[in-house]
Design a protein around this nucleic acid. Structure first.
Lengths: 170, 170
DNA sequence: TATTGTTATACTCTATAACTATA
DNA sequence: TATAGTTATAGAGTATAACAATA
């Protein structure tokens, strides 16, 4: 319709660009900035993993199995903060794709001893290369010493939260 | 069954406690630690918001509307990184609960000018109190100057990511 | 009795295509 | 043509209850 002449629209656009929304309250908030930073880095890492058909969570599981062959599903779940029922589909898919397998556990016939297949080890190796490259890129953005400082700060937040969220039985 | 005598189980449990899973690769990774820290802080903040019937995302929306009355849905979406279709349900709920309302925009009859109701302002005020308390608690965990250092580091990660994820039209 | 893995289920968050009414 | 809001839909991720086998 009329009303929105070219001039009017221009004025409106300039007014919006000028004010640019006040989001200072959020951008000064640790919780919000943690979320934005996490989403940004995960999206980036996820894109790089796409070539391997992995998502970040699957990479984490493969990495833990790779360094802890024989680990059980419950152990992975408590270590990574995954609900046990939700882990079934995860390991189902990894096993279905021939990357990991469920074996008999030595001392407990209820438990599954997880391990990587040779194919799983190859995929993990490539994924770890991608991860190291990604971490290096993040470190470069943070400047000298930034990575170490950020890790130290984050671990403080994770450790304090742990008492409430993860293991009350440790 | 037999096999798992008390002694055997004890040995097994001690072995597991001793090795305690090697997750060093993940805990030395910025991406993973960002995720764990973000989940921990969001879970904590979410619990505190529960009394107000808000989730962290809804708090963010209320906060942006509160400081930018007349803001449109699209503007909020680009500012907060929400897909426009997903925002409909968000503002539907806030409006249905009488906390926000959609009004006529001044220069564009397609757009909705969002604003808070008096009830919305009261809820936001209480939520901001909870948020300040939460942020203060996080800051305490980080030690002197930790909050400022962490915010500075996180903003570096968010800014670099922005070119790819949010606005290519800026 | 407690724990491991499992099924079923539900809810949130996120992502994409396509429509309408305006611009 | 392009944009704002919307619908429909699908996929992840996450959470809880309950069950069988085993401890």
């Amino acid at each position: 319709m009329k009303n929105g002449s070219a001039a009017t629209r221009r004025v409106q656009r300039i007014a919006r660009a000028a004010k640019a929304l006040d989001v200072a309250l959020l951008e000064g908030s640790l919780g919000y900035m943690l979320r934005r930073a996490q989403l940004a880095t995960f999206a980036e890492f996820g894109k790089e993993l796409e070539a391997l058909g992995l998502r970040p969570g699957q990479f984490g599981v493969l990495a833990v199995i790779g360094r802890n062959p024989g680990v059980t599903q419950s152990e992975i779940c408590t270590a990574l903060g995954i609900q046990r029922p939700n882990f079934v589909a995860v390991i189902d898919e990894l096993e279905g794709r021939g990357l990991a397998k469920r074996g008999a556990a030595a001392y407990d016939r209820r438990a599954n001893a997880l391990s990587l297949t040779p194919a799983g080890r190859r995929v993990l190796e490539r994924a770890e290369l991608a991860q190291r490259a990604h971490e290096a890129r993040l470190a470069a953005r943070l400047g000298p010493g930034g990575q170490e400082r950020l890790l130290a700060l984050l671990s403080r937040l994770v450790e304090s939260g742990r008492g409430e969220t993860l293991s009350e039985d440790r």
